[in-house]
Amino acid sequence: MAVLRFTNVAHGDTMAFGTMVTILATWGLQSVGITGGPVPTALLALPVGIAATAALLLATDRMVYRFYRQQRASSAILLIVSIGVMFVMNGLVRFIIGVDDQRFDDGSRFLVSARDFKAWSGLDEGLAIKTTQGITVLTAAVVMIALFWFLNRTRTGKSMRAFADNRDLALLSGIDPERVVAITWILVAALATIAGTLYGLDKSFKPFTYFQLLLPIFAAAIVGGLGSPVGAIVGGFIVAFSEVGLTYAWKKVLAYLLPMGLAPDGLAQLLGTEYKNAVSFLILVLVLLIKPTGLFKGTST
């Protein structure tokens, strides 16, 4: 959404902050004996994380962004400003929870474990679905539907789209810009905290990893077309599958696909997993060279 009219590079660290608060709340819940049973306790702690992140973002907007908005600063200046905000948030997170890895998933580990699947299907290879993976897919779908419903069906959501479309006409129509901006930040807080927590549940929480998420996030947004919600989703899938596709060890797959005896000796991995970020970067450069507007043209800044 081009409501705020700038590219916010602090997304990764916003996710880190939201996740950090969620983790602290999770530990709090666990210490008083409340757990989510089979589902991770962190999901119960999500509202706390979202509320704290929303408060942080609204305070940041009041202290930093509002000044530049009133100056009608260009989006390039706001981009630089958001880099500053990113460093402050980054420091805040490291200061509070430290730079180390934190694991905070609990509940049952697997929805489908490899051994159970083998026994059930009689196949040679197992299929494992981690609980966190299932929850991630489910939550992503629910959040996506809720977001589109909000933007396309509610009065407030429509007023946000109107504001993004034509700011002056939105003002003439009586849409309050400060309210639209505030709601946008709250949405950012909710989405970033949910995304960060799900990511942390599936992997683990480490502030630096979240900072590094910035590149794939941008690659996804630009592939899809800046300012287009559908584009962001499609772009996310493209970037993710490219990253995994190029760094995956295809040995076993090839062994089954190719005729007997032709199976490769090596891992058949095109790139080391350390080069994952290079894939995002390559996609980014290619898209900017070939189709800078992205797949779905949005209202870019």
Binding site: R161, A162, D165, N166, D168, L169
Partner: peptide, 10 residues
């Protein structure tokens, strides 16, 4: 207004 008087993507 004379120009920019609609919300084009809506």
């Amino acid at each position: 207004p004379q120009t920019h008087n609609i919300f084009p993507s809506m």
